[in-house]
Amino acid sequence: MKKFLALLLAAVMLTAVFAGCKPAEKDPGTTDPGTTDPGTTDPGTTDPGTTERKKLTIVNVPKRKGSDWFNRMDYGNQLWAEKTGDDVTQQGPNAMDPVAQVQNLEDCIAAGVDVVTVVPSSPEAVEPVLKKAMEAGIVVLTHEAENQQNCDYDLEAFDNTAYGAHFMDNLVTLAGDSGEYVLMVAQLTHATHRVWSEGAVEQNKAKYPNWKMATPDFLEGPSAEEGQKKFEEALNKYPNITAFIGCDSSNPPSAAAVVESKNLYDKVTVMGTSMPNQSRKYLESGAIKQISFWDPGMAQMAMCAVADIMINGDGVIETGMDLGVEGYNNITVKETDINTVIYGNAWVDCDKDSVGEYNF
């Protein structure tokens, strides 16, 4: 009997030892190690005692490098890198060239980066290479590409149709109840520019019957020089034009240069998307009446925040979330048949009286 009791005691003790070596079961009410609360904790911080946050390699691929718009987006890269220690760079074509942009993305795949954030010059052209990036395990986030299929998320500064409609509302406020206008995009392949323009036309038809688009289609102005040339041609062909709405940040300054050279201040109302520093002198002279914009630097930071949640956090992106970035403090997430879109609330209107509040 004593021998039996001794053996039983030894077996109990051995079981206890092995039980102590068993991994602890995860508490479903706790957060995974390495996650951050985007609304309260700075990106890059971790809870003491948890797994260290992974340092990310993020490459931002814009439509083109060197423009004021994408220089400001690169500023967002710098802010994120300073805040988190992530390796964040911008690489892209020097002109709007879908083929060159595809090659930039191929380079990212070959380098094995963690994240690419892309502003496609042609969403259709980059679909295959974005699919390839996702298959390689790279997080793919797009911007200004609401219908992009091969992406983890597309992030938009706001609802794009509503942004276009507000162009038309503002035009009527600035220029009166009737007239003829032209709409200019950078290129007809730019999906977001078309959505804004179509939103403006829809609002025109629904609410302002005494306004009409002077040209049969949208004008293309991929550069300041080309935009100026196309607007001059339109004025010569359609002399009743009284308003101009530009979608690319270079478009309103291009039209304003024509207004100044031809002294059309009292005839043509110029407005649209642009950057404060790009349009400042024309706002002050009256050649541009109003610009609208969002901060591309903050949009880039918001994409980086989404990537951080996906890789270092719990991966959950949902409506009402605060990404910790101005304009993206109460996001809306929309599932579509082809992708998932994140909407911020980030548009700003600016005129000669408020342009001094901005320095970019």
Rank of each mutant, 00 (worst) to 15 (best):
E82T: 06
T89P: 03
D107R: 10
V118H: 01
V126I: 14
D87T: 09
I109M: 02
D107S: 14
V99G: 09
Q78W: 08
E124K: 12
A125P: 03
C108I: 05
Q91A: 07
A110H: 07
V102C: 08
V88I: 11
A125K: 07
L105E: 00
Q78K: 13
E124N: 12
M96W: 10
Q103H: 11
E124H: 07
Q78I: 10
V126H: 00
D97M: 02
V99Y: 15
N104F: 15
P120A: 09
L79I: 13
A81P: 00
V118F: 01
E82A: 13
K83N: 12
A125V: 09
T117R: 07
V115E: 01
V113S: 06
A110Y: 09
A100K: 10
G92A: 02
Q91G: 06
N77A: 12
C108L: 07
A110W: 06
V88Q: 00
G92K: 00
S121P: 07
Q78Y: 10
E124S: 14
T89H: 05
Q91L: 03
Q103K: 13
P98G: 12
S122N: 15
V99S: 12
V113G: 04
M96P: 04
N104A: 12
D86N: 13
A111P: 03
C108G: 05
P123T: 15
E106I: 06
V118D: 00
G112E: 09
K83G: 08
D107W: 08
P120M: 04
G85A: 06
L105P: 00
K83S: 13
N94I: 08
N77G: 13
P123L: 11
V115A: 01
A81Y: 00
W80C: 00
D86K: 05
L105K: 02
N94M: 14
D114T: 10
T117N: 12
N94W: 14
V116M: 08
V119G: 13
V102M: 09
V113D: 06
N104E: 15
E124Q: 14
I109T: 05
A95R: 10
A81R: 01
M96F: 12
D114E: 08
G85W: 09
K83Q: 15
V116T: 05
Q78E: 11
A125M: 08
W80M: 05
Q91K: 10
D107V: 05
Q101P: 01
D86L: 06
K83V: 04
A110K: 11
G92N: 00
Q90I: 05
P93L: 10
P93Q: 10
A95L: 05
K83L: 14
A100E: 07
V115S: 02
A111K: 14
Q103L: 07
Q90G: 09
A111I: 05
K83Y: 11
D97Y: 01
V118R: 01
V118Q: 03
T89L: 04
P123I: 03
Q90C: 07
V115N: 01
E124P: 03
V113R: 03
A111W: 12
V119K: 02
G112Y: 12
Q90Y: 04
G85N: 03
V88A: 01
D97L: 02
V88T: 10
